[in-house]
Amino acid sequence: MSFDADTLIERRRLRRSLSAWRIAAVLAVAAAVGALVVGLDGASFVEKRQAHIARVPISGLIRGDRDRLKMLDEIATSGAKAVILAIDSPGGTVTGSDGLHTALRRLAEKRPVVAVVDGMAASGAYIAALGADEIIAGRNSLVGSIGVIVQFPNVTGLLKSVGVEVEEVKSTPLKAAPSGLVPTSPEARQALQSVVDDSYGWFKSLVKARRDLDDAELRTVADGRVWTGAQALELKLIDRLGDQDTALAWLNEARGVDKSLPVRDWKGSRSATDEIKLTTRVLAALAEAAGWPQLAQNLRTDPVALSTALDGVLAVWHPPVGQ
């Protein structure tokens, strides 16, 4: 009888110990979720689900950026009522700028988009600005550089001076041309020029369509130079002079967006879905340790199981290499 009582007491002690571990696991889960909600990309899921105006910075060299394109799609399903593009970039690659422009036009079908040129929107960055519904620039901002360029070093003279001769065997004369290691043939130069001309023609057609220019107006602005904001306004490359406050006023007057809404920065980093997948892996391990195998299994088989509650966040001017 004494043995049975001791066994019962020990079982109760083990149950209390197991309950304590489960409570600790629950607290750890709560802390992990809290950290996710509060600290993701400088702003919380809660904030980005609330009504606001999204501010998207476009700076530096523009290249293909899957994270940024994904982010723009996420803005369309967030609480953002409008989007301000804060542009300060010399441009970038034609393909990267084209992809960014396409994503912005897709976003503009769901949210009003206004571009504000903080310092420069040249070449590919101007392509991005053309994705907005309205373009605003500072009086002395630089805008334009409508053109395409490919640059490559030719070191044949240097190689010859040091006694180095590059030999090559290739399938056709235009394979890997130009290389810079051998003199550029007229045929290779002509082939490269055709590529530049094709991209340039596309760029000009985009400007003509988005800015509603006639042929004479297009010839004036598409000679490759940059213009100040004041010049760009006269040439119809932008819509007005101003800054972010001007953009907020336009959004209110033209699109009925409350200009008192908070402006929140969206940055191209890991998306909300990626963060949720990472967090749910951690939560699955915690659930397993806490003795909840079914919950752990559910999290592993559906890594975005939490997304129902936490859904959503998340071309160059005189370039040295190419545009």
Rank of each mutant, 00 (worst) to 15 (best):
A209Y: 02
R22A: 14
R211F: 05
L27W: 15
D265C: 02
D4P: 02
A232V: 01
R139G: 10
A132G: 05
G256F: 04
A209P: 01
A132Q: 12
R270F: 06
L286Y: 00
W202V: 10
V164K: 11
R15G: 00
K204T: 10
A24M: 15
K259I: 09
T172Y: 12
R11G: 00
I238Q: 05
S161W: 07
D274P: 00
V46M: 14
A125G: 05
Q151F: 03
A82Y: 08
I135T: 05
G163H: 15
Q294A: 07
L61E: 10
A28F: 11
L235A: 09
L306Y: 15
D65K: 13
T246W: 14
E10Y: 11
G312D: 11
T77H: 11
I53H: 03
S161F: 06
E288G: 11
W227Y: 15
S194L: 04
A24I: 12
S179C: 09
L192T: 11
L278C: 00
D67L: 07
V46A: 15
G144F: 02
I276P: 03
M1Y: 07
H101P: 00
S205T: 15
A24C: 09
L213C: 05
G91P: 04
M71H: 08
K277S: 08
A125L: 09
E234H: 01
K208F: 01
I238D: 04
V263Q: 04
A86Y: 07
I62H: 14
R300N: 13
A216F: 11
V83I: 08
P183W: 10
T93A: 02
G268R: 06
V38C: 04
W21V: 00
V164P: 07
T220Q: 06
P178W: 14
G144E: 04
D4A: 10
S59D: 12
A121D: 07
V207G: 04
R15P: 00
T308W: 08
R210P: 02
D65Y: 14
P112Y: 05
G39R: 03
L69S: 09
K175L: 03
S161N: 04
L8D: 14
G144Q: 07
